[in-house]
């Protein structure tokens, strides 16, 4: 539903600064007049510049590309920069930090740290012993154009963390790898330059911390801003792992 502007919007925002021993979590309301094309990015900056200079949140690209700004908007994890206020019928908008991640303050959470840990676990790089011996003055190795496109499709994840915040399993068990990790596995399995096979991922994936922990609630698929094919890839990896282990 689209609304004209000039509405008074009320933002209910969770405030908490763990750096300050006196700070206790509380919800604070801020009001703002809606302007045409207003996004949560614009609204939050306006609140910070005019009303509450200590408000913490993260934006970098403000264009839906970098994955910095995920937060829980009216109960749903979304990229705040891409969310337009006019899409909300009700003028009251609640903003919460994403669960699952370490809280930095207010709406800012430490996705960077979680993603680095995930990358180290999955080893999100091409495993090829000859990699450092490739003669880069020579023609590159050929690759089927469709295959390159296919790898890119799986490479589009922006590590925003939304799939983890939207995941029922992840909220119950901290050590669950989650959709973002599975997507990385799928990406490197699809890439012939990476010489790992399914069974190389067995320790990581073949248990409840891995694909067998997934309860198929598919919050990841519903909320992933890049619309990555989570359901299909998780099913695919499950099959692969089952086959690999006989």
């Amino acid at each position: 539903m689209q609304h004209s502007t000039g509405r008074i919007l009320t933002f209910e925002i969770l405030r908490f600064n763990p750096q300050n021993p006196q700070s206790k979590p509380k919800v604070v309301c801020y009001q703002l007049e809606e302007t045409p094309g207003m996004s949560i990015f614009i609204a939050l900056n306006e609140i910070r510049e005019k009303q509450e200079p200590s408000l913490q949140f993260d934006f970098v690209c403000r264009a839906g590309i970098c994955g910095s700004c995920a937060m829980v908007i009216n109960g749903k994890p979304m990229l705040a920069c891409r969310t337009q206020t006019k899409t909300f019928e009700h003028p009251k908008i609640t903003l919460m930090p994403m669960p699952v991640f370490e809280l930095i303050g207010d709406l800012s959470v430490n996705t960077g740290k979680a993603m680095r840990e995930m990358a180290e676990k999955v080893e999100t790089w091409v495993h090829d012993k000859r990699q450092d011996w490739v003669d880069i003055t020579r023609l590159e190795e050929k690759m089927e154009p469709e295959l390159a496109d296919q790898i890119y499709e799986l490479d589009r994840c922006i590590e925003c963390g939304i799939c983890l915040a939207a995941c029922g399993t992840k909220r119950m068990r901290e050590d669950f790898l989650g959709a973002v990790g599975f997507m990385k596995v799928a990406r490197f399995l699809a890439d012939p330059r990476d010489h790992r096979e399914e069974d190389d991922f067995y320790d990581l994936l073949g248990n409840d911390k891995g694909v067998f922990g997934c309860m198929s609630l598919m919050g990841c698929e519903d909320f992933c801003p890049k619309e990555l094919p989570h359901q299909q890839q998780i099913a695919y990896i499950r099959r692969k792992i089952l086959f690999a282990t006989g």
């Binding site: 790089w125 091409v126 090829d128 990699q131 490739v134 880069i136 590159e140 050929k142 690759m143 089927e144 154009p145 390159a148 496109d149 790898i151 890119y152 490479d155 890439d191 330059r193 990476d194």
Partner: peptide
């Protein structure tokens, strides 16, 4: 070689 899926 480091994994960029350049279009072909």
């Amino acid at each position: 070689a480091w994994g960029v899926p350049w279009s072909r």
